[in-house]
Write a protein that binds this DNA or RNA. Structure first.
Lengths: 238, 238
DNA sequence: GTCTATATGGAGATAGAC
DNA sequence: GTCTATCTCCATATAGAC
């Protein structure tokens, strides 16, 4: 036994410095936009040297990831409460996504930085292995929203519904980030209309005429999500 | 009359230099990946000074745009021929998209650079005003594929079908760019399955039960695509 | 108009002080 | 472990030669 060296998971030693740097950065980003803010300014406004900022955050983008993680931690409990009030699937999904839009609204411009990394090999990507914890938590929310909601889907597609809803959320937020309409009203409309259409489609899905669609969807989803991870996928950085 | 100063639309003066720089850049990108290649290397391998490269191309990204424009010019005639052989809607769409995938395959990694600009305000974005000419040409292809194909859709949604198909194509290519499966076989499957599903859905669309979907879709599409451009949209750079 | 030489400013890396 | 000072490399800008 080397030592009992993990009594406090995150020693408050200088956790405060980290928090200070992050807070300064977010304030600057909100005020002047992510692109225009330099790491030098972040460090200066936090009262530390440039190297200190890089000691706590590997890159400028890492600040965004930290914000994203912090946000997730703050949002989850609220979603738990909302889901507990067991309402309809539509109301549950609406509540989940709307809560996130509201939460992120003050930092909407900052989210643009997040959305520029789509490559799953990029650690900052919402699809990367590094962000899988956040992603899984998020998908779990949709899984709870689906459970005991009475959705009727064949077993070949039902298991993928939470992941598809998560993907829907990501697409919606991507639109929102770049939505310049007054008060992002286009996003509101897109959200409302597409969600209604999804719910209608889920109801129609049990009709016999939809059978061929299910077959194709099931095949595709299985191949994409349950692909053998040992298949020789290319690990080169593009 | 100042002068007859436009006899040759693009004087071959040193159009060749431009072509040389572009070719050198593309070769380097193919070989070592867009990110790892510096403008210095591009200039050096073309045998010109750094400034010369910037004289012809405003930025490193502009090289990608130039490639994209060149590609579009080379692809269009081929698509014209394909569409003239008036086949079914499915075969037409399949031919259009497959031709692009084949054409871009050698430069697939380069396309990743294109896809990192989603912001419509970014000149390099496929959704920007600057790339509207390419975009419109591309959408026109899908419009021709739809025309006289016998698709039955209500007048509230039919006019948007070409644009939706274009969007479908963009999404598919985004997936393709980051698809590390052997020979991008996952993309092939995604393409095949989703296209079949789209065609089935278009056939089912005339059923009366689909009426509520059409209403929502029509409202949404009208708001998104036919929005008053004079509405006070935010022009700030995020 | 074409192009070279040189300058600027920022992201990220690192050596070592404490 | 925490942080400062300094360094490298690059995209991009610009002055001016031809």
């Amino acid at each position: 036994m080397i030592s009992l060296a993990m009594p406090r998971p995150s020693a408050p030693k200088s956790e405060s410095t980290r928090a200070l740097i992050l807070a300064s950065a977010l304030a600057a980003f909100r005020e002047r936009g992510f692109e225009r803010v330099t790491m030098r300014e972040v460090a200066a406004s936090a009262g530390v040297a440039l190297g200190a900022a890089y000691y706590y955050f590997d890159s400028k983008d890492a600040l965004v990831t930290a914000f994203y993680e912090q946000a997730q931690a703050e949002i989850l409990p609220a979603l738990d409460r909302t889901l507990a009030q067991s309402r309809s699937l539509e109301q549950r999904i609406r509540a989940i996504i709307q809560h996130k839009l509201d939460y992120f609204a003050p930092n909407r411009r900052l989210m643009a930085a997040l959305s520029s990394h789509i490559d799953p090999q990029n650690p900052l990507s919402p699809f990367s292995a590094d962000t899988s914890r956040i992603r899984e938590q998020d998908i779990a929310c949709f899984a709870r929203a689906v459970s005991d909601s009475g959705v009727k889907l064949p077993p070949s597609t039902l298991p993928y519904l939470p992941r598809l809803l998560w993907l829907y959320q990501m697409g919606l937020m991507l639109f929102w980030v770049y939505d310049r309409s007054p008060n992002q009203q286009l996003t509101t409309l897109l959200f409302d209309k597409t969600l209604r259409m999804i719910l209608i489609t889920l109801k129609l899905a049990s009709l016999p005429i939809m059978r061929p669609l299910h077959r194709h969807a099931g095949d595709l989803l299985h191949a994409i999500y349950d692909a053998d991870p040992n298949a020789n996928f290319d690990q080169a950085p593009l």
